[in-house]
């Protein structure tokens, strides 16, 4: 038996749903779960969900940006940030917000496997390394 990866499952599911009638979606999902069950891959559900969402975003041309800040962003700041990030990726960006006081200040943005670290914590670390030299 071929061992399918979560990514392949997610792509297949996405294709099946997007090609079919919105009415049939329930049925397709049921069938999908049946397929998983018969392949013994029910354990992969979490990962398939993650892959599915990612694939969906990809299809819509939207990218997810994980932003971490020390304090919650104000509405103004957020709007500005989204505007800038949209420009950076050349498309639309969906924000996933996280708050981590350990950053002290500044912001850390993660898009795909790219990391833009502009936090105070990082600067302090760099300063520490520099002084050590």
């Amino acid at each position: 038996m071929i061992n399918y990866t979560p990514k392949q499952y997610a792509q297949a599911l996405h294709l099946a749903i997007s090609e079919s009638n919105p009415k049939d979606q329930e049925r397709i999902l049921d069938n999908f779960v049946q397929v998983l069950k018969s392949n013994g891959h029910l354990g992969l559900l979490d990962e398939i969900e993650k892959e599915f969402l990612r694939h969906d975003r990809e299809q819509r041309g939207v990218k997810q940006a994980e932003i971490t800040t020390a304090k919650p962003l104000s509405r103004d700041e957020e709007a500005k940030l989204i505007h800038n990030l949209n420009e950076y990726v050349g498309g639309k960006v969906e924000l996933k917000k996280k708050v981590d006081e350990g950053l002290i200040g500044g912001i850390m943005v993660k898009i795909g496997d790219e990391l833009i670290d502009g936090s105070v914590k990082k600067s302090l670390q760099e300063l520490k390394n520099k002084l050590k030299e």
């Binding site: 790219e114 990391l115 833009i116 670290d117 990082k122 760099e126 520099k130 002084l131």
Partner: peptide, 16 residues
């Protein structure tokens, strides 16, 4: 002086 001269640069890094 060294601290004053220090400038943190924000770079784009690839991470995993």
């Amino acid at each position: 002086n060294r601290i004053a001269a220090f400038q943190s640069q924000v770079k784009i890094e690839r991470i995993g």
